[in-house]
């Protein structure tokens, strides 16, 4: 895995590559969904790439993240393999979760990715727990929770932050304020204007950064990570960003206009970062085009491989519930009940 240190030119190119990979992956997922090729729901990260990649570039490789239902971007930012992600979206046996999780549950605990999560607000308590592990074991890892503006209204998010703050745990709480909780604008869900103001209630630092600027997110998380690793406790960061797609694919988006979207697209995170790198001579236009074409091909290949991959054997439905074997499940799966009971 290429280390993502965006203070270096290599790291900047890699960050750009990851942002492009997220966009290509999720744009492809949108196409596949509208063509009816993907089962279930997909929630796409297009527009928010700078937050995931900026944050993960400020983390160490053994740090933990928790994610949301909109988790593809976090996975790619953390270094997960798009081939295995795509296989999971198709429900194939070689997917990250062997086809059991799908888009909303991609996880790779060994890579520090504690799971996308279908429950809004369920991730922050898990991050508090991962930070508790780090604290109890005296490790120098940090846990970062990505969660949305909608989740800030959830009680368990408050509990998670309060616990981490009170216990001074090495956690970072990063709100991706993409301006809508499902279809409801953020100002109709919260009585504070900046969600970072809620940090005051926990006596921890809270601030707002431009989530369309990868360097801002990177620097913010870098400082917050340092504070956490130094034993000074959690930080609350609000990254202001925007999702270009609907809440879910198929969302008709009656709650906003094309002009609303255009204001944010005008500040597109990938385009602006690319422009800065071109200006600085870190990458040329040609190299960028080449990178983009390569990534598009990589995602095409991922789709091809995912389509060709095998579905899990139906018997797999009865695996993985527990580490231990449980007769209730193994007896069912072996069809024992078919004889109606042993003393018939």
């Amino acid at each position: 895995m290429v280390v993502l240190d965006i203070e270096t030119e290599d790291g900047q190119r890699e960050a750009l590559r990851r942002m492009l990979t997220i966009r290509a992956f999720d744009t492809k997922a949108a196409d596949l969904f509208s063509d009816g090729e993907l089962p279930g729901f997909v929630h796409l990260y297009v527009g928010e790439e700078a937050v995931g990649v900026g944050a993960c570039s400020a983390l160490e490789s053994d740090d933990y993240i928790t994610s949301t239902h909109r988790g593809h971007g976090h996975c790619i930012a953390k270094g997960l393999d798009p081939d295995l992600m795509m296989a999971e979206l198709f429900g194939k046996a070689n997917g990250y979760c062997n086809g059991k999780g799908g888009s909303m549950h991609i996880a790779d605990v060994d890579a520090g990715m504690l799971g996308a999560n279908g429950i809004v607000g369920a991730g922050p308590p898990l991050a508090t727990g991962a930070a508790l592990t780090s604290h109890l074991k005296g490790e120098d890892t940090v846990a970062l929770a990505f969660f949305g503006d909608g989740a800030v209204a959830q009680g368990q998010v408050h509990e998670a932050i309060n616990l981490a703050a009170t216990w001074n745990l090495p956690a970072v709480f990063l709100v991706e304020n993409n301006q809508y909780g499902e279809a409801t604008p953020v100002e109709k869900q919260h009585n504070v204007q900046n969600l970072s103001e809620t940090a005051e209630a926990y006596n921890i630092p809270g601030f707002t950064v431009d989530g369309m600027d990868i360097t801002a997110v990177y620097e913010a998380v870098k400082e917050a990570r340092k504070r956490a690793a130094d034993g000074e406790g959690p930080t609350f960061i609000e990254a202001e960003t925007y999702r270009y797609h609907g809440h879910f694919e198929g969302d008709q988006q009656p709650y906003r206009t094309e002009e609303d979207v255009a204001i944010w697209k005008d500040r597109d995170a990938i385009e602006s970062f690319k422009r800065r790198l071109v200006d600085a001579g870190t990458i040329t236009e040609d190299e960028f085009d080449e990178m983009k074409a390569e990534i598009d091909q990589q995602i095409e290949d991922a789709v091809g491989k995912a389509k060709d991959a095998a579905y899990p054997d139906p018997s797999e439905a009865y695996e993985d519930m527990f580490n231990a074997a449980v007769p209730e499940i193994s007896d069912f799966s072996s069809g024992m009940r078919a004889d109606g009971g042993e003393d018939r």
Partner: peptide
């Protein structure tokens, strides 16, 4: 300005918080 007083100096410096209330 609703955004003023909310930047990273709340973490890195001794800047005080100016909330919207």
């Amino acid at each position: 300005n609703p955004a003023a007083g909310r930047d990273i100096r709340r973490l890195t410096g001794g800047a005080s918080v100016s909330n919207n209330y």
